[in-house]
Nucleic acid binder design. Structure first.
Length: 609
DNA sequence: CTAGGGTTAG
C-alpha cells in the first residue's frame, strides 16, 4: 500500500498488476472501505477490462458484504476470465445468495467459459447452504464432465454437501474415491456422522485418522467431542480428553467450550468446572455460557446463578445462550422482570431464542397473560416457540387456547414434532376433551409419530385424564419399545382412575422386565396400595424406594404418608415425616390430614402452627 | 477465486 502511494506521488502510472496487488492487499487486511476509492481510480485509467484487477475488485466488495456492488462491477466489466466468474460466484455463496450463484454458473457455461475446481467447490457450497441435494447431484455430474473429480477442494466440498444433506453413503463413496485427502476432508466426513448422531462411525473414522497419522486440528476435535456429547459416550470422552491434554489443542477456547459442554451432557459437572477453571475463565464468553448451561442441565441452579451474577459483576456481557439458560431456571417473577429489563437494555428482545425463553419464563412464573403478549409480538416463531406457548396454556388449564394455537401452528406450515404433540395432548385434561384428544392422537398416528415413547406416554396420560382407560391400555400395548416412562404413565393411569389392582399388577409386570423403578412409578403404586389398604406391600415398596434413593422425592414420601395414615400406622407416619429433608406443602398437608383422620387434633394443630 | 465446528430454548 505504501509503495503504491509513493509510486503515484512520484507521478508514475501503476500498471494493472500493481493495481491488482494493492487491491489484493486491501482484501487481506479487511480494508473494505477502500473499495470505492480503488473502483474510481481503476475506472479512470480503464483497467476494469483487466481480469486481474476486475477479479480483485469483485472479491473485495463481496468479502466486504456488498455483493450487489460486486455483481454490478462484474456485469459492467464483463469478462470471460474464469477467475472473475469464480470470484462473483464465490461472492454470491458467501453472501447467502446460493441461487444467484447457480444461475451465474449456467450463464458461465453458456458463454463457453470453462469452469474449474474453484467454481465447483463454491457451487457445492451453495447447494449445501440451501440443502439442495438434487441440484448438488447435478453439479456432481458437471464435475465428472469437466474432469474435476480428483480436485481435493471439490471432493471435500462434495463430502460436505452429502454429509449436510444426510446422504452418508454418497459422502463415504466420495471420500473413498478421492486420490488425496487432507484433514479437512476427514473432518467434513466425520461432521456428517456427528450430525446423524452416529457415534460409532464418528469414532471409527476418528481412530482411522489417528492410525493414518493425519494431523488432528481444532475442527476435528470439536466435532468428535460434540458426537461424544450427543451420544453420551462417557468412557471414550475421558480418553479423548487425555489425547487433547497431550496435544496443543487444550488451550483453544472452542475446544474448552466443547469439553465443558460434553461433561455437562454426560452429567459430570465437576469435570466441566475443572476445564472451565483451567481454560482461563476470565477471557472467553463461550466458556461461561457452556459452563452455565452445563450447571443448568444438571440442576445446579444456585451455582449457575452465582456464575451469571459474577459475569455481570466482572462486566462480561452474557450472550444469548447464557441468558436463555438462566431464564429457564427462573422461578420468581420479580427476578424474571429484572432480567427482562436487562434483555431490553442490551437489545436482545428480538432474538428468537431469548424471547422464547423469556415468554416461557413468564408462563412458568404464573403470568400467562404477559407470556402470550410477548409471544404475539414475535415476528418469526419457530417450532420450539409455538410448542412452548402451547404447553404454557396447557399448564395453566387453558385448553381451548392451547388447541387454537396448535391449529394456527399447523396452518402456519410448521410441522409438529413429538414435543408439540405432547404439549397439545397435555391440554386435554378432562373428559370433555376426549374427542379433541382422540383427534390429536389420530394426527400423530397419521404422521407416523406414534411409536415414540414421548408421544406414547402423553397419549396414555391424555386418555387417563379423559377417563378412557381402555384406550390408554391399547396405546400402551401398541408400542413396541416400553421404557420406564411408558410403564409409569400406564401405572399412574390405573392408579388415578381407581383401578388399583391393575396398577399393582402392572407394577409387578414392569419390575419383572428388569426395568428400574422411578419416583413417579413408585408414588403411583403407593397410592394404589393406600386405596386397597395394603400396608404390607406398601412397606416392601418403601424398602425398595429407600434402596433406590427415591425416598428423597417428596411425591414418594407423601404417597407413603397417605398409605400409613390410611392404614392407621400413625407412628410410622411421624417417623417418615421427621426424616423428610425439605417438606413441601403436600407433605405437610398429608401429615396434618393423617393426624386429623385419627382424631389426633392436638398434634394436627401443632403441625399447622 | 475454493473446503471442515461451536446446539442454546419446549
Amino acid at each position: 500500500m505504501r509503495i503504491f502511494k509513493i509510486m503515484r506521488s512520484a507521478g508514475l502510472q501503476p500498471d494493472q498488476f500493481a493495481y491488482a496487488n494493492v487491491i489484493l492487499a486491501c482484501t487481506a487486511m479487511e480494508k473494505f472501505n477502500l473499495g470505492n476509492l480503488f473502483l474510481s481510480l481503476v475506472m479512470k485509467v480503464g483497467f476494469l477490462t483487466s481480469g486481474y484487477v476486475l477479479s480483485g475488485l469483485i472479491d473485495l466488495f463481496a468479502k466486504g458484504g456488498c455483493f450487489v456492488k460486486a455483481l454490478d462491477i462484474f456485469l459492467y466489466g464483463y469478462s470471460d476470465n474464469v477467475v472473475c466468474w469464480n470470484a462473483v460466484i464465490a461472492g454470491a455463496v458467501r453472501n447467502g445468495e446460493s441461487w444467484i450463484a447457480l444461475k451465474l454458473f449456467h450463464q458461465m457455461v453458456e458463454s463457453l467459459c470453462m469452469p474449474n475446481g474453484f467454481t465447483f467447490s463454491s457451487l457445492l457450497g451453495a447447494c449445501a447452504a440451501v440443502g439442495e441435494l438434487d441440484v448438488g447431484r447435478t453439479i456432481h455430474a458437471w464435475i465428472v464432465k469437466f474432469n474435476q473429480q480428483d480436485d481435493i477442494f471439490v471432493g471435500t466440498a462434495a463430502i460436505d454437501l452429502y454429509a449436510k444433506c444426510g446422504d452418508m453413503d454418497a459422502a463415504v463413496k466420495m471420500f473413498l474415491s478421492m486420490p488425496a485427502k487432507n484433514v479437512v476432508s476427514w473432518t467434513a466426513l466425520i461432521s456428517g456422522f456427528v450430525l446423524e448422531e452416529d457415534g460409532d462411525s464418528t469414532l471409527k473414522y476418528f481412530i482411522e485418522m489417528l492410525r493414518n497419522n493425519i494431523y488432528i486440528n481444532v475442527y476435528t476435535i470439536t466435532s468428535v467431542l460434540f458426537a461424544c456429547a450427543k451420544c453420551c459416550m462417557a468412557n471414550i470422552s475421558y480418553q479423548i480428553h487425555g489425547l487433547i491434554l497431550k496435544s496443543a489443542l487444550y488451550t483453544d477456547p472452542a475446544v474448552n467450550a466443547a469439553l465443558i459442554n460434553l461433561y455437562g451432557r454426560i452429567g459430570n459437572v465437576q469435570m466441566s468446572e475443572k476445564v472451565f477453571k483451567e481454560g482461563g475463565m476470565e477471557m472467553h464468553l463461550s466458556n461461561w455460557s457452556a459452563m452455565i448451561s452445563s450447571l443448568v442441565q444438571n440442576q445446579y441452579f444456585s451455582r449457575a446463578l452465582e456464575l451469571f451474577l459474577q459475569m455481570l459483576c466482572e462486566d462480561l456481557k452474557p450472550d444469548k445462550s447464557c441468558i436463555s439458560s438462566i431464564l429457564s431456571i427462573v422461578d420468581c417473577i420479580i427476578f424474571g422482570e429484572q432480567l427482562h429489563s436487562y434483555i431490553v437494555k442490551v437489545g436482545l428482545v428480538d432474538d428468537l431464542l431469548v424471547c422464547s425463553s423469556l415468554f416461557t419464563m413468564y408462563s412458568k412464573c404464573g403470568s400467562i397473560g404477559d407470556s402470550y403478549e410477548l409471544f404475539g409480538q414475535m415476528p418469526d416463531k419457530d417450532r420450539v416457540a409455538w410448542t412452548s406457548m402451547i404447553s404454557g396454556f396447557a399448564r395453566h388449564g387453558n385448553a381451548k387456547e392451547a388447541f387454537q394455537l396448535f391449529r394456527e401452528m399447523i396452518l402456519e406450515g410448521i410441522k409438529p414434532d413429538d414435543m408439540a404433540l405432547s404439549a397439545a395432548l397435555t391440554a386435554c385434561n378432562s373428559q370433555i376433551f376426549l374427542d379433541k384428544g382422540k383427534e390429536i392422537h389420530g394426527f400423530s398416528f397419521r404422521h407416523g409419530l406414534s411409536i415414540d415413547t414421548v408421544i406414547g406416554s402423553s397419549t396414555i396420560s391424555m386418555y387417563s385424564k379423559c377417563k378412557d382407560i381402555e384406550s390408554a391400555r391399547r396405546v400402551f400395548a401398541y408400542i413396541q419399545c416400553k421404557d420406564q416412562i411408558l410403564w409409569s404413565s400406564l401405572i399412574s393411569a390405573y392408579s388415578t382412575n381407581n383401578k388399583s389392582e391393575e396398577a399393582i399388577l402392572d407394577f409387578h409386570r414392569m419390575t419383572t422386565t428388569g426395568l428400574e423403578i422411578d419416583h413417579v412409578t413408585c408414588s403411583s403404586v403407593l397410592v394404589a396400595c393406600a386405596q386397597l389398604f395394603r400396608p404390607i406391600l406398601g412397606t416392601q415398596i418403601h424398602g425398595q424406594a429407600i434402596k433406590a434413593g427415591l425416598i428423597l422425592h417428596n411425591s414418594v414420601a407423601s404417597s407413603l404418608l397417605t398409605l400409613y395414615a390410611k392404614c392407621g400406622i400413625i407412628s410410622e407416619c411421624r417417623k417418615l415425616f421427621d426424616g423428610i429433608q425439605n417438606p413441601d406443602l403436600t407433605t405437610w398437608t398429608t401429615m396434618i390430614e393423617g393426624y386429623a383422620r385419627h382424631g389426633r387434633a392436638k398434634e394436627a394443630l401443632k403441625h399447622l402452627i
